Amino acid sequence: MAERADDRDGLRLDRLHVPLGPALGDWPAGLVVRLALQGDVVQQVDVQTAIPALPHPPFWDEPWLRVVAGERVTHGDAARRLCAAHLDSLGRYFAVVGWADMAARARRVRDGALAGTDAAELSALARPLIRRAERSRALRWLTTGLGPLSAEHAHHLGITGPALVADGDAHSRLLVWLDAVGRSAAACDDTDVVDAAEAVGPRGRIDGPAPPSQPLLNALPGLLEGTEFACARIVVASLDPDLDQLAPAEVQGAAHG
């Protein structure tokens, strides 16, 4: 139902309450974002999570969790998981902006990475996808200026992953993912061992005071307020928080023995 409230132009407009998630295609599983809209502009944001207990560690973080636990993990294994994780995020990002063939392509390359495709072949598969996305004027026009997040503010929030490196908007975060895919695809055969100081997964540091997706969730209200409703999902997709990271710690610990 609608209610009345002042908008930023001093007019009295209907305020509509619209939930996004949790059952939404190309959306972080378990995330609910409740929006208060006036016209097509987001005025208020309430972020909620439904986090089930997991019988296993978060899939995308598994190599770095093993490193923190003192196990031997090669750079190649970590790079392969990182490459696949970013391709998984890119699949959602492309789907949300309406680029269905690129979403499908990103997911095919992701599946190849997880299936053990060697570094040379994986790089050859990823390179055209990266080049096409980087050169797309339509994609740049659609996503530039959405959800700006400076490195300073990201650091203040405790963000340690790609959103910190990007130091910018939804398009900047896309470019960081694309660059990471290219570098990690080329490193998939590296047999050197990952050091515990390098426990940085797809969303950030694994050994920090909070799961790396928590500060991404904390950033959402500030990034979404004032955004047009049609753009809200793009902003969420450009952060792509993994709510599996927020599962109860005792379950994760039990999974690691």
Score class of each variant (00 low, 15 high):
2 A>S: 12
2 A>N: 07
3 E>F: 09
5 A>Q: 04
8 R>W: 11
17 H>W: 10
21 G>Q: 07
24 L>R: 14
27 W>T: 11
27 W>C: 06
30 G>L: 03
34 R>V: 13
35 L>R: 06
36 A>C: 06
40 D>Q: 13
42 V>H: 00
42 V>S: 03
44 Q>S: 10
45 V>K: 03
45 V>E: 04
47 V>H: 01
48 Q>G: 11
48 Q>V: 06
52 P>A: 11
53 A>E: 12
54 L>P: 04
54 L>W: 00
57 P>L: 13
61 D>H: 10
62 E>W: 07
67 V>P: 01
70 G>C: 05
71 E>K: 14
72 R>D: 08
72 R>E: 12
72 R>M: 12
73 V>E: 03
75 H>Y: 11
77 D>K: 13
79 A>N: 02
80 R>D: 00
85 A>H: 08
87 L>S: 02
89 S>Q: 13
99 W>G: 06
100 A>V: 15
103 A>L: 02
105 R>W: 13
107 R>V: 03
107 R>M: 09
110 R>K: 14
112 G>E: 06
113 A>V: 03
116 G>A: 02
118 D>Q: 11
119 A>E: 07
122 L>W: 00
122 L>E: 00
123 S>Y: 02
125 L>D: 12
134 E>I: 12
135 R>M: 14
136 S>K: 07
139 L>C: 06
139 L>W: 03
146 L>K: 09
151 A>V: 04
152 E>R: 14
153 H>W: 08
155 H>M: 12
155 H>N: 10
156 H>T: 15
156 H>P: 01
156 H>L: 12
157 L>K: 10
157 L>Y: 09
167 D>C: 08
171 H>F: 13
171 H>Q: 09
172 S>C: 13
174 L>E: 00
179 D>P: 00
180 A>C: 01
183 R>L: 08
183 R>P: 02
198 E>Y: 02
202 P>A: 13
204 G>S: 04
206 I>P: 00
211 P>L: 05
212 P>D: 02
216 L>R: 00
222 G>P: 11
223 L>H: 07
229 F>I: 15
230 A>R: 15
231 C>D: 15
232 A>D: 04
234 I>T: 15
234 I>E: 02
235 V>Q: 01
236 V>G: 04
236 V>W: 01
237 A>V: 10
241 P>D: 02
242 D>M: 05
243 L>W: 06
243 L>K: 02
244 D>Q: 14
246 L>Q: 06
250 E>W: 14
254 A>T: 15
255 A>M: 07
257 G>H: 13
257 G>A: 15
